Amino acid sequence: MIEPQLHPHVFVGSGHAEARHDETQRSIVERGISMQQSSNTMSAVEFLKSRDVGAKVIARVLLEPERRRSNDM
């Protein structure tokens, strides 16, 4: 099982670890979408991969914008 990477200041068991992880991931995905719009798709893919965003999420948010969650941007 792969452990999610958490913000270093979040204490596991505090009840906020998952929410903080989601906020961080959302911010990373938003930056990737912005990068795609201002630069190109490959730069966005490489950025998201370097931040450990999963391949399925990358494909969904960059290649299928109609399937983005409302909070993806």
Rank of each mutant, 00 (worst) to 15 (best):
residue 53 V to G: 00
residue 29 V to H: 01
residue 43 S to R: 13
residue 3 E to H: 10
residue 16 H to P: 00
residue 52 D to F: 06
residue 50 S to Q: 13
residue 32 G to M: 02
residue 67 R to P: 00
residue 2 I to Y: 08
residue 45 V to S: 01
residue 67 R to M: 11
residue 45 V to I: 15
residue 69 R to G: 08
residue 13 G to L: 06
residue 46 E to M: 08
residue 73 M to K: 14
residue 50 S to M: 06
residue 18 E to P: 02
residue 68 R to E: 04
residue 6 L to T: 10
residue 71 N to R: 14
residue 48 L to Q: 05
residue 72 D to A: 09
residue 73 M to W: 05
residue 52 D to C: 04
residue 20 R to G: 00
residue 42 M to Y: 10
residue 8 P to S: 11
residue 55 A to T: 10
residue 42 M to P: 00
residue 58 I to K: 01
residue 23 E to Y: 13
residue 13 G to V: 06
residue 52 D to E: 06
residue 46 E to N: 10
residue 23 E to A: 15
residue 53 V to F: 01
residue 14 S to G: 10
residue 67 R to E: 11
residue 30 E to N: 01
residue 9 H to K: 15
residue 23 E to R: 11
residue 48 L to K: 02
residue 21 H to S: 04
residue 53 V to Q: 07
residue 23 E to I: 06
residue 25 Q to P: 00
residue 8 P to N: 08
residue 56 K to G: 03
residue 72 D to P: 04
residue 35 M to N: 04
residue 16 H to A: 13
residue 40 N to F: 05
residue 58 I to A: 01
residue 12 V to R: 14
residue 61 V to H: 02
residue 43 S to Y: 04
residue 2 I to V: 13
residue 28 I to E: 02
residue 51 R to H: 11
residue 16 H to Q: 12
residue 34 S to C: 09
residue 37 Q to R: 15
residue 60 R to Y: 03
residue 16 H to T: 09
residue 69 R to V: 01
residue 48 L to I: 03
residue 46 E to D: 09
residue 19 A to G: 08
residue 53 V to M: 12
residue 57 V to D: 09
residue 11 F to Y: 06
residue 8 P to Q: 07
residue 30 E to M: 03
residue 42 M to W: 11
residue 35 M to C: 11
residue 4 P to Y: 07
residue 25 Q to Y: 03
residue 5 Q to E: 11
residue 66 E to K: 07
residue 12 V to G: 08
residue 45 V to D: 01
residue 59 A to T: 02
residue 39 S to I: 10
residue 3 E to F: 12
residue 69 R to T: 02
residue 47 F to H: 05
residue 3 E to Q: 13
residue 43 S to D: 12
residue 40 N to H: 10
residue 17 A to N: 09
residue 58 I to F: 01
residue 73 M to V: 13
residue 3 E to S: 11
residue 53 V to N: 02
residue 20 R to T: 08
residue 29 V to D: 00
residue 60 R to W: 03
residue 73 M to N: 14
residue 26 R to D: 09
residue 34 S to F: 09
residue 48 L to N: 04
residue 26 R to F: 06
residue 48 L to H: 05
residue 9 H to P: 00
residue 16 H to F: 12
residue 55 A to I: 08
residue 61 V to M: 03
residue 28 I to V: 12
residue 52 D to L: 07
residue 13 G to E: 07
residue 52 D to H: 09
residue 39 S to R: 14
residue 30 E to V: 06
residue 15 G to V: 06
residue 64 E to K: 15
residue 8 P to V: 05
residue 9 H to D: 15
residue 1 M to S: 12
residue 73 M to A: 15
residue 69 R to F: 11
residue 58 I to D: 00
residue 5 Q to C: 07
residue 23 E to V: 07
residue 40 N to I: 04
residue 15 G to K: 08
residue 14 S to D: 03
residue 64 E to D: 13
residue 19 A to C: 05
residue 34 S to N: 14
residue 32 G to S: 03
residue 63 L to N: 15
residue 70 S to T: 09
residue 68 R to K: 06
residue 67 R to T: 06
residue 48 L to W: 01
residue 53 V to T: 05
residue 72 D to F: 02
residue 27 S to E: 12
residue 19 A to I: 10
residue 14 S to T: 06
residue 47 F to A: 01
residue 69 R to L: 14
residue 15 G to A: 10
residue 40 N to S: 13
residue 45 V to P: 00
residue 56 K to H: 08
residue 7 H to I: 04
residue 15 G to T: 06
residue 8 P to D: 08
